[in-house]
Nucleic acid binder design. Structure first.
Lengths: 253, 253
DNA sequence: AGCGGGATTCCACTCAGTGGAAGCCAGGCG
DNA sequence: CGCCTGGCTTCCACTGAGTGGAATCCCGCT
């Protein structure tokens, strides 16, 4: 190619920057100018590359001319083995947990240095939380994140610590001194609880999901208001749901 | 770029060809050589571009070194508004339909000239069908496809006919003379039924899902063995489920 | 009819990308 | 234990695909 590339080197990286712009919070569709701004690319370049993406199907034009993620990307996403399989197996257990407690329940996997939410049942009259399907939240401040971190190995913890972890709320743990014993306890007890660490007013109870080999591959959690003490039965319920999914996974394999 | 490009013109198109290779049937992970073959690209080019995709997260390396779709693409896919929203709204109705009939139930939307399956509940002891989440099947040979085609407008039918539609089984309809009156009847009756048109031994009953404005945005169907006559109550059940989802969509909007 | 903001297209310049070949690595076999 | 064989990565000199500022187009709104 040519040109006076200032930051994004090649066409590939520019395409990735354009796609990444749609991962940002809020807006699912963007006008070209906003897209170029978010991707950090000149308008003409963005226009040309976006047109190619639209032709391929990776992006779509909405009725009002804005751009959004295309069905082709959704289709490609379904080809990843983990989310589909885990969702399918876990769904009945999440349903039961939801019916029983009428609180937010969710399942997440490790994605780099974050917890990626694969599925979620939203309680209308419970706390409003940040977790959402397809979203990532930090490992050190969420129930599912702490579970994944606890069984993620030394190296993962080291990488998280050098990120470094942000103190999102006063109760958020950010140091090795705080986290190491807590993770050891989570491994020992097989359950993690949080309170006002990611979202003010929210507490959570989370347990690990294991595959046939016993490796932790996901985590399941329930999020409840933190103003009252957490119903002691929730811990058992989450444990049971996680065990059920694990057993099902072992059977399928 | 440079070089002696034989078919795929630019970097963008080559990246798309690489990603498209993962949409093929069967294998979810591919070794590089197979990937290059499917994408129709030289090995060295495929190696370089795949490495960039891996670095970005669009592709991942499996434990045995093969390549598969990455979580980043799954995450991007969740940013498309339709599948997530429709799935969430439709899920309870699909569940009910499944509990009641113990047959395969599914929801699909129009994707180009095909029906794209968004969600699906699989009956273990019913017929084995081709429909699967993230997969596309022809409009003219499936229940959901015929529904989407019936309300897809003149132009869609014209484009389907000039594809042209393949006669997959003896009972598959492929001509305008056959399809036009059938689609008119589907519009009149609000329901489509098929028998041995896509998969031998499978019959289906499908109904349209409408949004707040009354436009058909999806279709719901049940697939049953075709050896026996279809239980007459299924038609009503599918209609009711579709109406339920439509009403829910109207409320949300 | 004229304005303003956003999207597309133009065009001469140039470097990112090319692909055959060489190099590398691991595993199987005699 | 050394030698293939097959799959993947890296090298390198060449070149046309891609660049981006500016001009143009296309709306909707006065």
């Amino acid at each position: 190619m040519a040109g006076r590339a200032n930051d994004a080197r090649g066409v590939a990286e520019r395409l990735f920057a354009i796609l990444d712009a749609f991962e940002g919070p809020g807006r699912r569709s963007l006008p070209l100018t906003e897209l170029a701004r978010r991707a950090g690319l000149p308008l003409s370049t963005t226009s040309r590359l976006a047109a190619r993406l639209v032709e391929w199907g990776g992006l779509e034009r909405t009725a009002d001319g804005e751009l959004q993620v295309g069905l082709r990307l959704w289709r490609l996403g379904t080809r990843h083995p983990a989310p589909g399989a885990l969702r399918q197996v876990a769904r009945p257990y999440l349903d039961d947990l939801f019916e029983l407690t009428r609180q937010n329940v969710q399942i997440a996997v490790l994605d780099g240095l974050a917890a990626l939410y694969l599925d979620r049942l939203t309680a209308r009259d419970s706390v409003v939380v940040l977790a959402d399907v397809g979203r990532r939240l930090p490992l050190h401040a969420t129930g599912v994140g702490l579970v994944l971190l606890a069984w993620g190995g030394e190296e993962l913890l080291a990488r998280v610590l050098e990120a470094p972890p942000r103190r999102l709320l006063p109760a958020t743990m950010t140091t090795a001194e705080e986290l190491a014993p807590r993770l050891a306890r989570i491994r020992r007890e097989g359950i993690a609880t949080t309170r006002d660490e990611m979202t003010a007013g929210a507490a959570s109870v989370a347990a690990p999901i294991r595959d046939a080999s016993g490796a932790v591959v996901a985590a399941i959690s329930i999020i409840v208001p933190s103003e009252r003490p957490v119903d002691p039965r929730y811990e058992l319920a989450v444990r049971l749901a996680a065990s059920g999914v694990s057993r099902e996974l072992a059977r399928h394999a």
